[in-house]
Design a binder for these strands. Structure first.
Length: 156
DNA sequence: GCCAACGTTGGC
DNA sequence: GCCAACGTTGGC
């Protein structure tokens, strides 16, 4: 069964507009160095899962688009790259520590700000709205997903 | 730029 | 295995 996710990205690093310009409009989600987020990608994500694309650490945090999971989890290539800031000396090619999936651009949506999302009781449990939230990948329930799709279609 | 919240590290 | 110290995240 398809699962739903929310992935955060700093637009100064990778924005939804950047996604459009990528080869195959697809990118390896490298650089995740948090075990909870890694485990989502390694153990739970499947081809075809959908994710909200969130801009964080920016002027207008919120939902900007939708992407989908492509293929399966694979070792994060940057952990072996000495020149990368995501290099991890403890990781070896035959024993990777960090795993990730690839994400493909689906659509750029209407922008929904974090401020607006906080208004809806239906979304009160969203991880991304919780105080002190730092998790860069989180689960979205089907009900939450459906509700947000309605928001995006202006039908709430 | 501030600062609360969180995950990770490392000494014991 | 505890827990204080530290570095980072990210909304405001």
């Amino acid at each position: 069964m398809r699962k739903y996710w929310l992935i955060k990205s700093e637009p100064s690093e990778l924005s939804i507009d950047d996604m459009v310009t990528l080869p195959n409009q697809t990118i390896e989600w490298f650089g995740i160095r948090n075990y909870q987020a890694r485990n989502f990608m390694l153990n739970e994500m499947q081809e075809g899962d959908l994710a909200l694309f969130w801009h964080s650490s920016c002027k207008e945090p919120g939902i900007y688009g939708i992407v989908s999971v492509v293929g399966q989890a694979h070792p994060d290539s940057h952990q072996f790259d000495v020149k990368s800031k995501y290099f991890d000396a403890k990781a070896k090619p035959d024993k990777p520590i960090w795993w990730c999936v690839d994400f493909k651009y689906i659509e750029k949506t209407k922008f929904i700000s974090i401020k607006e999302l906080r208004l809806y009781p239906e979304l009160a449990k969203l991880q991304v709205l919780k105080k002190g939230n730092r998790l860069s990948i989180s689960r979205i329930s089907e009900n939450e997903w459906v509700f947000i799709q309605k928001l995006l279609k202006n039908s709430v």
